[in-house]
Design a protein around this nucleic acid. Structure first.
Lengths: 297, 297
DNA sequence: CTCATTCTCTGACTACAGTCAGAGAATGAG
DNA sequence: CTCATTCTCTGACTGTAGTCAGAGAATGAG
């Protein structure tokens, strides 16, 4: 498998790397082209640009200056914050950006052109699969402090989604709490998933010595769905629970969360009578953490 | 489709590009690492190295010097040709190359690690498909002069393969000729397929005004099989024949060439009575070049 | 043997990417 | 208002990649 991945890396960097060279081949250095591209049609402030491209401020400043000297961009002061500068493409800059776009399209179609219709369809499908799974593999899952800003942002997004999806809305005050202290070791824990630094999902555990652990706050951001992240978080939570001595995990869920319910079922959870009085729950599930058959993670 | 390809390019250069950086991150510049890698465990002469890496001779010379100064490689004169120098890795150099190898493995497995078993299987399969089809798309097919060295090399490889595969060997003298003049426009033409500069296959056409065109010399190198190249050559030959006024193409083939026979059948050829007295032929095929249903190229 | 060619190396460059240490203006918390 | 912080810019660097024009030795075709 590793050899296959390495062979992929080699082929793709050769073929797509050459393509990237075509992309940048506009008589302009790569750095300038990247910035020109990233500015976008509607302009952008320099601070954002620096963050997105991860460039040194001095370096970026010089790159912008060179674009300005070439008549491709203009800089202006932000009205909101006098320190921030906003860069905007001139007509010439926008034209050059379109040209990059056109070239990039041409490079992509040069890959497809020599292939038959059937091969094209298969290639594009395989590429989509690779993109999807590489994205899934780029998701980072870690134990996080529920008090950190990203965790709080996840929590807020989770509550907002519940409020939207539940038939009768959602008021955290009416639900059984799982406060920050309860989700901090050793009382419990929070797994936070991020993709390229952005929150992508979470899942939490409340531990009760000698009793089943409770899974709470399972959530996957819309942008990260279809990556198998829910299953991964669930499996990781089970692992954490088992490590900490739990032999059974359980959870409750609302009937409107269909994907979650089918995830639980397919992950080996079986429905049990209500074990608490959660106001928003319609289903209660439980799973023994025995030496389960090692299947789809 | 083009958008999908571009999204693939973006994802893959991000993810695999970062991986390549890990590959080179040995405190040594990329150029040196690439050369160190390419020298290989058994040494290599500088001329080869230059060709494979497509480096300027002065630049390569300096890179080799720096490896030598670092104690990673030694240079020696070739005994066969006093101008050529041979570079060989020292123990330290080999160790560093192994380290690169190890790192590259680690980078590959870091992609697989976060995935479930099922996802891994699917990713590796999709990667293999992408590699196969990107390779297919990297094959260049062009009209070639049958006298150029690459064409002659193909022809020799083709005859050698026939001699090996035919039950009673193959003697070109006993076969209907298709000489270099006959495969040169306007009498006919030769399509030569190359992959990374290496001959990958060929197909030829003999044109007869007012009569069916003849397809000859269909051959795909072993290394290029499974890429759909036979089908592509066949289809391109048909296109050439049609452009030059032929309404029917025909060909004969030997019973031992099973892949070819099934290719012809699936490409719409139907078997016809012998239309010539080719000594090595067992099957004769014909196809009308009407406005055929546009299917698998 | 002669002479064009091949192979490698050196010197002298250019250009791009990127880092680091400040300086100066604007901002906002106290 | 004060002062630490933020944002941008400038100057002064370093290191890598890569090019080009020869020079000198070895080779091989004639």
């Amino acid at each position: 498998m590793i050899d296959q991945v390495r062979s992929f890396n080699r082929t793709v960097t050769q073929r797509v790397g050459a393509l990237d060279e075509a992309f940048l081949a506009s008589g302009r250095p790569l750095g300038q082209s990247r910035v020109l591209w990233e500015i976008g049609p509607d302009g952008c402030d320099v601070r954002q640009l620096r963050a997105r491209l991860e460039l040194d401020s001095g370096y970026l400043s010089r790159l912008l200056r060179s674009l300005e000297d070439a008549g491709l961009a203009v800089m202006e002061q932000s009205t909101a914050d006098g320190r921030v500068r906003i860069v905007r493409l001139t007509a010439a800059g926008a034209a050059e950006r379109d040209e990059l776009d056109r070239r990039s399209d041409a490079a992509a179609s040069s890959i497809l052109r020599p292939l038959s219709d059937g091969q094209r369809t298969r290639l594009v499908a395989a590429m989509a699969e690779v993109v999807r799974l590489l994205t899934a593999s780029a998701v980072d899952v870690r134990v996080a402090d529920p008090r950190e800003p990203e965790a709080r942002a996840c929590m807020a997004a989770y509550f907002a989604e519940l409020a939207e999806r539940f038939d009768d809305g959602f008021d955290p005050g009416l639900s059984i709490p799982a406060g920050e202290a309860e989700l901090t070791p050793p009382a419990g824990l929070l797994l936070l998933a991020t993709l390229h630094g952005e929150p992508a999902g979470m899942g939490a555990l409340k531990l009760h010595a000698g009793e089943p652990a409770e899974i709470k706050r399972m959530w996957v951001a819309r942008a990260a769905r279809g990556l198998g992240l829910g299953r991964r978080l669930l499996s990781d939570l089970e692992g954490c629970a088992a490590e900490r001595g739990a032999r059974v995990v359980r959870l409750e869920t609302n009937e409107s969360l269909h994907e979650a319910i089918s995830l639980y079922r397919s992950a080996g959870y079986r429905e049990v009578p209500a074990f608490n009085d959660e106001a928003y729950a319609h289903h209660w599930f439980e799973k023994e953490l025995g030496r389960e058959p090692r299947g789809e993670r």
